[in-house]
Simulated scan of single mutants.
Amino acid sequence: MSNSNNILGHSLSFPLRIESDGRFAWSEGESNIRESLTVILKTEPGERIALPDFGAGLGRFLFEPNNAATHARIERAITGALTRWERRIQVESVEVVADHIDLSAALATITYRLVATSSRERISVAVPLKSP
């Protein structure tokens, strides 16, 4: 494992996978951080008994309209959750727009910097909303 991967993290992969030798797969480096972001964004508060506040709670927007007001609330939820739960990154921006392919979803694009290396990364996630 390289030194930069050590400072960026090393843990079980998500979703859990089994390697060909029968052992659990591990993730490290930038992919470990992306997996962590996915876990935070897809977790609803209350799902984890030991951390009842953990997660972004994006499921609460399921029946909300796909408009600017909802997009702003999603941006705040994402920024707050990632700032609180993932200390290895610094959120630079969160942009939420209507998904032009799936009209019942918004597309959130998150730009962040890795604290350890100052490298800029970007991920996108679809947030299900009210069907048109």
Rank of each mutant, 00 (worst) to 15 (best):
S2C: 02
S4D: 13
I7V: 13
L8A: 04
H10S: 08
H10P: 00
H10E: 10
L12N: 06
I18W: 09
R23W: 02
F24P: 02
A25K: 09
A25Y: 06
W26M: 14
W26H: 10
G29S: 14
N32T: 01
S36E: 00
I40W: 03
L41E: 03
K42M: 14
P45K: 10
G46V: 04
G46C: 03
E47H: 06
A50C: 11
L58N: 02
F61K: 00
E64A: 12
E64R: 07
T70F: 11
A72M: 09
I74E: 09
T79R: 08
G80T: 13
G80Y: 09
A81P: 08
I89W: 12
I89P: 04
Q90W: 08
Q90G: 09
V96Y: 04
V97Q: 11
I101T: 07
L103C: 03
L103W: 08
A105Y: 05
A108C: 07
Y112N: 03
R113W: 01
L114V: 14
L114R: 04
S118C: 02
S119L: 09
R120Y: 00
E121G: 02
E121V: 00
S124Q: 12
V125M: 15
V125T: 15
V127T: 05
L129A: 12
K130F: 08
P132S: 01
